[in-house]
Design a protein around this nucleic acid. Sequence first.
DNA 1: TCATATTAGCGTATTTTATACGCTAATATA
DNA 2: TATATTAGCGTATAAAATACGCTAATATGA
Lengths: 226, 226
Amino acid sequence: MKQSIKLTVDAVVFGYEAKTETISVLLVKRKYKPFQGKWALPGGFVLQEESLEDAVERELNEETGLQINYLEQLYTFGQPERDPRSRVVSVAYFGLIKPSNFKIAAATDAEDVQWFKTTELPKLSFDHDKILKLAIARLKGKITYEPIGFQLLDNKFPFSDLEKLYTTLLGRTIDRRNFRKKILSLNILDELDEKISRGSGRPANLFKFNKERYFQLKNEGIIFEI
Amino acid sequence: MKQSIKLTVDAVVFGYEAKTETISVLLVKRKYKPFQGKWALPGGFVLQEESLEDAVERELNEETGLQINYLEQLYTFGQPERDPRSRVVSVAYFGLIKPSNFKIAAATDAEDVQWFKTTELPKLSFDHDKILKLAIARLKGKITYEPIGFQLLDNKFPFSDLEKLYTTLLGRTIDRRNFRKKILSLNILDELDEKISRGSGRPANLFKFNKERYFQLKNEGIIFEI
DNA sequence: TCATATTAGCGTATTTTATACGCTAATATA
DNA sequence: TATATTAGCGTATAAAATACGCTAATATGA
């Protein structure tokens, strides 16, 4: 067996800001060759005795200092020529973080770390463009049949944040009344006895995603769908 | 970099027989240690300069002689202890073959190859039980929102074959009239000027999945859904 | 302090889609 | 030629999705 393949993990981490209604991706500036000085997805080599998930979380923490909120495997990229140095296969992950976490990024490690709006992306290293493209498609697709959107909002959020998130992700206007009816009929949101006022306009009630209830419904075969 | 991780691919290949209404999985009996003599998913080490897809197709061909009809990446399994020998990460694939191909299996290589009904599975080697379980879930889930079912039927098939396949996969009865209406309204089947008679009963018209039309509709944003 | 701008919150009518339901047609076989 | 078997199809009802516009509560600027 002459196989000598290196294994890496890469992470596509999305963040959302309701104020500007933008989805951003976390990128790091590469310190070493190849693609030195270019932007890339955070990631790196898997340690010998470490699970893939541990590897992603370690790399993310080392490079960005961020606490991830939701993480799932995206796809494994293994084209022989994807790394100019040698054969490197990368298991890509897909992550989401909450806005409160969003703000503290870029605060930790040596390399440059930055949030990029998905509409203003730089050219990326390796095949990371391809990975990112797939991740964006996954995010947009998944949001309609699994409640991962809540992972991009704070624990307590006004309904309008959710609405704006869906408008942004789906790239089209949605009817506010019908959307509210639909989401509330799913019975996975708890309305709190708390209001929030952000600038002008009527203060909004805060909601909370009820994870327990969601999993209970899921077990009963009731499916989330927008 | 002290990393020395081996990379393998494994394939979960499903076949369907309308006569018995059973879904089967292709398994091979292991020739060497570990798990010598035990059943496992077909697969093996990725060659140094080979893409992951090429590796799966090569291994499948070497071990079973089968031509695969549909192949997609399933998930990458990387728990450190999943192989007792050393660190081995496996990229699992999900494949479907048509009944005509189904029959010629087990005809080629040295190891023992066999179809197992998904209801009568043996204990598998490594973490292959877990992989198979995920693949079955994927098959059952995917069939409702992508027309992969046609990959399990012959090119020309009577409508009842499709109906039986869905009944089997979904594990519940479906209303024949409503199912027919729904599928035909999708406009992705061509009704042929050909009939088939299998034993008693009224001979059935043959249908053909219109791939071009499906992709055209898909591009227009029209989604297949059962 | 009051007029204006801004965001939140909600109901009903209409259209579309899903579901429920049972008979006749064409063949093989006994 | 009678019987068993599979194929093929329509209509009525229920459920879900969509379309649509006003009032409430606050901030802000005149």
